[in-house]
Design a protein around this nucleic acid. Structure first.
Length: 538
RNA sequence: GGGGGUGUAGCUCAGUCGGCAGAGCAACGGCCUUUUAAGCCGUAGGUCCCGGGUUCGAGUCCCGGCACCCUCGCCA
């Protein structure tokens, strides 16, 4: 029998013993549970002296993460969704329940009733006089100091990752807060939240390979949406003048630290606006999201890093690993100090990787062509120079449209240098089939992309509402070759435009990447609860 | 798809030149009424990712494969 099986069997034995004693090892309804964060807040007001107990009874529940059993006294550290709290259990207080402790293990979910106090070292403690087993854990939790580190296992058993690594749970709590803030921001501007089809007979609104599926009753193939764009614009035709959708999109493409096959966009359309208005919306959305995430994360991480650096500095004879850990923590600390200083000056600063980013509006706005001139040294209109530059960069240019080559040069020369938040606007028209042309220069489209830390965060247009131009663009795209094309003609979409779509601004923001930026997460997998992975065969 | 890295006990990790498979945590037995990753004594636990090869002998070297991570490519 393997060690794993032995521990499993041992815990099953304890579960059975609980049953023999008339206790349900899986608990039941447990009323009046107080959140540990609330208990801690209340304790601050209570002014408990070390070594004393209050007379206020309360009930707390959570998972045992540490267990210190000594003769006739035990301390358990219990974790709920809001924090950790020490339970103190003495043989005198528990009476006949004392024997129950022998049947408890790390990882079990338990509840306790008792009074709040402080030990003589000052640790806040719930002195329990009654314990309730709420769920016997048959599998042991990961190592208590390091937590779960193995990246593969963390994603495959995210439930373990979440309870073993509180900072992971914190990221997802912040993700929830960010989405709520985005929603409230738009509702506050008079937007209506809608839901449009995920299963689409024709896919469009972006250039990507779709996932396909099949509906049995209708006997038709369907596509999981790569974008909600064409449906949301139909709503503009219908008179819904400000709409948004928090849209899970599916793209059958590669997986990387910035790409997951299913990802979340917030996409919005506003009648009578244009892409300049959308820039302001991006700034507003980021400010709202910042307030509930990075605005809290920066001071919290700063405090944690100060503590960590102090701990490492206190070591008398640090080994090599400790020295490099100290150096790493100091670099991090310097970044967070810089971000915190920005916050003190009223700015929306945060740390992402090696950078301190400043999201304070207004963000820099720069023309696509100017940036191309600045970083690639070529003029957008000089296609010979652009192609020469592309060749010198090692890019393949044969058979590609000028606009595609321009964009590839842009992506390899300009995008890697876009660290601070920026709006890049007026894109080459040929790669923007859904965008209105620039009134002064038909080679340009009224489109911008927002970047920060070299990541594309959002994409917006002054929307094209001329059905004849739209149809011509789509036909040209369908006929075209290469990467920047949309392969499918949507005739109903053109029909909708023929009924009259108001001039509008439209915007899509990648929610996952936004969460990455505002929680200092290096991989998109760190902000998606269950990222796609190859299934385990065994 | 290319390049680099990782894979050893349930978890976190050592394993030197090719020579008996190791530690901490977790587990089990014992001691312990103020611990903070509790401590102390003792016990048990291995498909060294998988498959070949070289060798008297392979966790270690070679070849092939698998999984994951990073990176490039791809990717609005």
């Amino acid at each position: 029998m393997s060690e794993e099986e032995r521990q499993h069997t041992e815990r099953q034995r304890k579960r059975d013993t609980l049953r023999e004693r008339g206790l349900d090892p899986y608990g039941g309804r447990f009323d009046g549970v107080r959140a540990i964060s609330d208990v801690r807040a209340q304790a601050a007001d209570l002014q408990l002296e070390p070594g004393t107990r209050s007379d206020r009874r309360l009930r707390v529940a959570g998972r045992i993460v540490l267990l210190r059993l000594m003769g006739k006294l035990a301390f358990l550290t219990v974790r709920d969704g809001t924090g950790d709290l020490q339970f103190g259990c003495s043989k005198a207080d528990l009476g006949e329940q004392w024997d129950l402790l022998a049947l408890l293990d790390l990882g079990d979910l338990i509840g306790a009733d008792g009074v709040l106090g402080r030990t003589k070292t000052g640790e806040l403690t719930l002195w329990a006089d009654r314990l309730t087993v709420l769920a016997k854990a048959l599998r042991p939790p990961p190592e208590k100091w390091h937590g779960l580190i193995d990246v593969d296992l963390r994603y495959r058993r995210r439930y373990v990752d979440l309870f073993a690594n509180p900072e992971v749970r914190e990221v997802f709590r912040r993700r929830s807060g960010i989405i709520q803030a985005l929603r409230e921001c738009l509702l506050g501007h008079g937007y209506c939240e809608v839901e449009t089809p995920v299963l689409q007979p024709i896919y469009g609104g972006a250039a990507a390979r779709p996932f396909t599926t099949h509906h049995n009753t209708l006997d038709i193939d369907l596509f999981l949406r790569i974008s909600p764009e064409l449906y949301l614009k139909r709503l503009l035709v219908g008179g819904m003048e400000r709409v948004f959708e928090i849209s899970r999109n599916f793209r059958n493409e590669g997986i990387s630290t910035r790409h997951n096959p299913e990802f979340t966009m917030i996409e919005l359309y506003e009648a009578y606006a244009d892409y300049q208005v959308m820039m302001e919306r991006v700034e507003q959305l980021f400010a709202a999201a910042y307030a509930v995430s990075a605005g809290h994360m920066v001071p919290a991480r700063l405090a944690a890093l100060e503590h960590e650096v102090a701990r490492l500095e206190a070591k008398d004879a640090p080994d090599e690993a400790q020295q490099s850990a100290l150096a790493r923590s100091r670099r991090q600390l310097a970044l967070y100090q810089q971000a915190a200083a920005g916050i003190d000056r009223g700015r929306l600063t945060t740390v992402f990787g090696e950078h301190v980013l400043d999201f304070t509006p207004p963000w820099r706005r720069a023309r696509y062509g100017e940036l191309l001139q600045e970083h690639a040294g070529v003029a957008m209109g000089d296609s010979a120079a652009v192609r020469a530059r592309a060749v010198s960069l090692g890019l393949e240019t044969n058979g590609k449209d000028d606009a595609v080559v321009i964009n590839e040069v842009f992506e390899s020369t300009v995008e890697p240098r876009l660290i601070q938040p920026i709006f890049v606007y007026d894109y080459p028209a040929a790669i923007c089939p859904l965008t209105r042309r620039h009134p002064q220069d038909e080679r340009l489209a009224l489109r911008f992309e927002a970047f920060a830390a070299t990541m594309e965060l959002g994409n917006a247009y002054t929307e094209l509402n001329d059905p004849a131009v739209q149809e011509a663009n789509l036909r040209r795209q369908v006929a075209g070759e290469g990467d920047e094309t949309m392969a499918v003609m949507d005739e109903d979409f053109v029909l909708a435009l023929e009924y009259g779509m108001p001039p509008a601004g439209g915007l899509g923001v990648g929610v996952d990447r936004l969460v990455m930026l505002l929680t200092d997460s290096a991989s998109i997998r760190d902000v998606i609860l269950f990222p796609l992975q190859r299934p385990r065969s065994s």
